[in-house]
Nucleic acid binder design. Structure first.
Lengths: 186, 186, 186, 186
DNA sequence: GATGAATGAGATTTCATTCAT
DNA sequence: TATGAATGAAATCTCATTCAT
């Protein structure tokens, strides 16, 4: 039949992301993905050479997307304080708007080795924090600040997914931003 | 016949923990575990009915252990501030001293559904934070505070494992504690 | 619309021969052949109904070609000795000038059953040898002579392909002819 | 159940040899082998890591066996003429008594690259022929002689398998030996 | 004639689990 | 208790062939 262009490839990536992020890499089978897309297993292999290739392609595109979101949030900020706020907003925004992508990333980095090839989104943030640190505007070491920021966002995300947050999302976002601001740049 | 019920069973649990935390659940096979212990696959089934049972037993014992560590850290503190500090120390201490158990826990909770049966260590901390919040001694919502605390510790742990921290562990610990204290209870 | 019935069909046969003789039947895929020709898999099926049909068509044309070469070598000879020499020259010539066809034939007959339909080139040679034998001009049984002739040529061919021959090809050819002559018809 | 020792491994090798030599490597499946042995596919993998490993193990043992047969035939001979005769007898004997092994070897060397690791049986024969050649006792180049010997034996073998020989085996053997002797050492 | 996505059957391999010894 | 061969189900991947365009 053949959908126009490579609609199918896109559908495979979407289905795979959905399943990987929900169930993990090993526990998601090619058959699962095929069924989700509505094709047969063999058809997957016209678009990808292996399961690993699907995972890798997702990793690259998600990493790129998140990195770009962060880059943009840094560029747009006018003061350091604003940039700080923008970064956290970008992180939370990404996690909340693209939960599957965000989960995928966490899962990947927990299970697989850190891939050398991929420049991680964290690097951009770290650069900014290093800069603040040099100017004595950061209350702690850059690595510690990075850990606090990214770790907090991740947990907030998990809590949200588990319906553990007793306040509405907007409120939580604002709280987190002001808490981290207070903690790190005063 | 010795007195300890089963030396082998203990060794299986240790080996399984080591492998699960390093490679993941699905990517660790019963054969891997058996080889690590120095026995054969069949022998594993003398001590456990299934692979899942091993995972579950590990989950229970690790969860219990961490919960007890936290409980103790709360009991021992005399002031609220001290308890706050103790809790964070207990968390970092656990992560740093029992990295495999800590990794196991993170992995498990990322991959499997939250098991209803298990009372999570976080609950004790949350109770304490709720208490602080009621007394207006917490700068943000308890859930947000819990996210910041546990998320930060997790990231510091990951950074340490990846040799990403440029200062020594003791220094980092102290920094984290003072940062979180500043952020959350001022 | 040209006159040659199908240029593409010819190209497919050539590519298939090249690949089959190099890698074997099963290890050569329709996709391999299509890629070699520069068309797609589906296009192959415009010209052939199945992979087996390609193999069979090659078999027929190669067998015919070799048989004709041998027939010609027999017709052209004036004395029995000359015919004997011509046959061996034709065999070596075919192997050396059409190595892919020759390899194909060997491979086919090693892997598949002897096809009843195909009259083998060997039959012509055997007829000639039978004739010599009747006239008491052959030093051994015709079958043995046929084995010695065809087997020797095949091995010389293999040795050449593996760069195992330490003398130039012309010399080797001459040596082989005189050796076989000495051995079989004195 | 488990037969004593590794009876099963031996049975797998035997069945695999039988099938490979009859049908080829790719056209013989693990399932075929398992069925022939009377076990399931999975069981094969307790004894071998892959299909290739089975092929390789067969290659090594067959090559070794043939090489030893030839080495012995050389050692036992007292005169050069006797050694010459012994070698051919050893080759024919091996082909006729272990037809599956002999077919396997031919098939392997036609389909796969010459393996560097394996010292080929031909080397021993070549050494002997080189020696004869130096002493001016060989009527042609050693490589040509080797080709004539091994090629003739192979074809005789094939003819026998195809019921193409019109005289009894013993007679054929004797004929071949005397023919080759006449051809090569006079 | 040609494309290339898709099918469907089957091949190799993996692995939790069972079981005779 | 322990061994390790065997099972059986399932996973990844391959490929000849079909078919809508």
């Amino acid at each position: 039949m053949g959908e126009r262009r490579s609609d199918t490839k896109e559908k495979i990536l979407e289905a795979a992301l959905r399943l990987f992020s929900r169930k993990g890499f090993r526990e998601t089978t090619i058959k699962d993905i095929a069924k989700e897309v509505g094709i047969t297993e063999g058809a997957i292999y016209r678009h990808f050479n292996s399961k690993d290739e699907i995972i890798h392609e997702l990793l690259i595109s998600i990493t790129t997307e998140l990195k770009e979101a962060i880059a943009k949030s840094i560029e747009k900020g006018e003061s350091e304080e604003e940039i700080f706020k923008n970064i956290i907003e970008a992180l939370i925004g990404y996690a909340f708007n693209k939960p599957e992508s965000y989960r995928f990333l966490n899962l990947y980095h927990l299970l697989k080795e850190y891939p050398q090839v991929t420049h991680l989104p964290g690097e951009l943030i770290l650069k900014f924090l290093n800069n603040l640190y040099t100017k004595k505007k950061l209350k702690t070491y850059p690595e510690v600040a990075l850990a606090v920021i990214t770790g907090s966002v991740e947990r907030i995300f998990i809590f949200k997914e588990r319906n553990f947050l007793r306040h509405n999302t907007q409120l939580i976002k604002r709280e987190l931003i002001s808490t981290l601001k207070g903690a790190l740049i005063g």
